[in-house]
């Protein structure tokens, strides 16, 4: 690990000022410390934001508001989260481990970095880590990689579970930088790799994630997260699906659907959503809609199975959501 200087600002303003001048935020550290130890990351200055007032979970009208520093475990166990947005709680406890969830913050979770093995190998070409050095995964072992949103420069999936749920719930986030605050959909946080895979998110330099806001609605309760993996726990998703259905009079009024493990960012499936609207919540409709999910998929040598697994995962998740009483 490279040496660094740790700063402990007392105010959000000081933290933002430090970050604007090149320092790096650190919250739970479960991504950053890990990658610093591998020397994939080498910030010279760290800004410890844990003392800032960015924690907590509150309800504002129909909205659930989650502070950026709220821990995964805390959010998953929160009665308001469980009551208003059970999908968030379910996606959280399917991720990482109890210990990591006690440490990891929601803001850090969204900004966690890819689990592509070559990304953490300093002796392999990786455009994300070292722009212009090539991508060892494209011709390498890429069973875990993406089939959607890939480019010739990077094919790594975004690993977060809860981000998939938040995208499916059309959550928004509020960020603050030296030039002020702005809010935008969580989905817009993530960039496609294109030919600049080292640029992963749309935050401006120094911008700090303040909170995440999720609006409630008729879909919030018929919502499920299905994570498919070879091991029952403590493994990233091969494929995952977050679905939320609002059903009226036996017909799907609105379907919300995002998937993980297959895209270079948490992947919302608008075409599937559209195909489900107005249909009866039945297996055949689910299957027809799910077939659209792999439109434009570009499987790699070792991850062709995801083209098969993705629609199956969606169908099953839709069934699970449909079964919610």
């Amino acid at each position: 690990m490279f040496p660094f200087v740790l700063e402990k600002p007392q105010s959000t303003e000081d933290a933002i000022a430090a970050a604007a001048s090149g320092a790096r935020y650190i919250a739970g550290g479960t991504t950053l410390v890990d990658l610093m130890r591998e020397e994939v990351e080498g910030p010279e200055r760290l800004v410890d934001i844990n003392k800032l007032p960015l924690g907590g979970i509150r309800v504002e009208g129909e909205d659930l508001v989650i502070g950026a520093l709220a821990r995964m475990a805390e959010v998953a166990a929160d009665p308001n989260v469980q009551r208003l947005q059970p999908l968030i709680a379910e996606s959280l406890i399917e991720g990482a481990s109890p210990q990591l969830r006690n440490m990891a913050s929601m803001g850090g979770n969204l900004l966690q970095r890819v689990r592509c093995p070559y990304f953490r190998m300093l002796d392999a070409g990786c455009n994300k880590r070292t722009p212009g050095s090539g991508c060892a995964a494209i011709e390498g072992l890429n069973a875990g990689h993406a089939i959607l949103g890939t480019s010739d420069h990077c094919v790594a999936t975004h690993p977060s579970d809860v981000a998939v749920a938040l995208v499916a719930l059309y959550a928004t986030m509020r960020v603050r930088g030296s030039k002020g605050e702005r809010s935008f959909p969580v989905e817009e946080l993530f960039r496609l790799p294109g030919d600049t895979p080292h640029l992963e998110h749309t935050l401006l330099p120094g911008e700090l994630i303040m909170e995440i806001r999720v609006a409630g609605g008729p879909h919030s309760h018929r919502a499920r997260y299905l994570k498919v993996r070879d091991r029952a726990s403590y493994e990233f998703a091969l494929v995952s699906a977050a679905v939320a259905l609002s059903i009226e009079g036996g017909v799907i009024r609105q379907a919300r659907l995002a998937v993980g493990g297959v895209g270079t960012r948490p992947w919302r499936l608008r075409n599937c959503e559209a195909a489900l609207a107005g249909k009866r919540p039945e297996r055949q409709a689910f299957e027809e809609a799910a077939q659209l999910a792999t439109q434009g998929a570009r499987p790699l040598h070792h991850n062709q199975f995801k083209v098969e697994l993705l629609p199956r995962t969606i169908v099953r998740a839709l069934e699970m959501a449909g079964e919610v009483a």
């Binding site: 689990r115 093995p117 070879d230």
Partner: peptide, 24 residues
Amino acid sequence: VLDPRDGRPVNAHMADYLMPVNLD
């Protein structure tokens, strides 16, 4: 899994070399 290009074990990591956990 070894990368045939240079023989490196690609999943030389406790999170990538899967072994049963309690829930399994």
